[in-house]
């Protein structure tokens, strides 16, 4: 479960969002500049809200009234950025292993092989991120986030930097991830078609406010 009720002032822009989602994939939908990335960064702990509460999986990770702010590294979240952000000085294998090492998790070969198979990245393991295509990079980034065993996976327009062909290449992996990985996700996108395929619940953002909340039907013009 994810509960968000926050206010954040960013220059002239006010982000004020409240929703509670039980969905397996919560889609954050809105035009660019609607505050989607700021909101997901607040959930991740990279940005601190001016006021309000964030709860992940029953744990309060932000509560300004009680002075609670759990730093990002202790939130046990996975974050897939639009620009992958693989560590350029590490091999794909080392990138994949990073979260496990940092969280001091025991080596789980079975899970590792499952994720590698799920994302079809077995042939890339010895390479450096500089030698990967955009789509490959994004798949490795997904694997890296998953292998840290997060309790919530945040995806900020993971297909945003890819062309149509690459998007179609990654989308099936995301669907498999949703159905097989068993980790709740928050999926940020400005593409309604993408969210219709992936999301189970939609939070619609406009100019920093939640304008509607519900099933994917809120994405269709008639559902407004």
């Amino acid at each position: 479960m994810l509960r968000v009720d926050i206010v954040k002032q960013l220059g002239e822009f006010t982000l004020q969002a409240a929703f509670t989602s039980e969905g397996r994939v919560t889609g954050l939908f809105g035009a660019s500049g609607a505050g989607k990335t700021s909101l997901i960064n607040i959930i991740a702990g990279l940005l601190r809200p001016d006021g309000g509460i964030v709860e992940i999986d029953g744990e309060t990770v932000d509560d300004t009234a009680r002075g609670i702010h759990v730093p990002a590294w202790r939130r046990r979240i996975g974050y897939v950025f639009q620009d992958a952000r693989l560590f350029p000085h590490l091999s794909v294998t080392q990138n994949l292993d990073y979260g496990r090492r940092m969280n001091r998790l025991p080596d789980d070969r079975a899970q590792r092989e499952r994720v590698i198979e799920l994302l079809d990245i077995g042939s890339l393991l010895d390479r450096r991120p500089g030698k990967l295509s955009g789509g490959e990079r994004q798949r490795v980034a997904l694997g890296r986030a998953l292998l840290a065993k997060p309790r919530l996976l945040l995806l900020d327009e993971p297909l945003g930097g890819l062309d149509e062909g690459r998007k179609l290449e990654i989308l099936p992996y995301l669907v498999r991830l949703r159905d097989e990985a068993n980790v709740p996700m928050v999926y940020v996108s400005h593409d309604a078609a993408e969210l219709r395929q992936l999301a189970t619940q939609i939070v619609m953002l406009r100019e920093g406010r939640v304008t509607s909340f519900g099933g994917v039907k809120v994405l269709s013009p008639t559902g407004r």
Partner: peptide, 14 residues
């Protein structure tokens, strides 16, 4: 790029 440091943080690195 500080974004790389942020990525490390989200992966659990103090």
């Amino acid at each position: 790029d500080r974004k790389l440091e942020q990525a490390a943080e989200t992966l659990g690195a103090p």
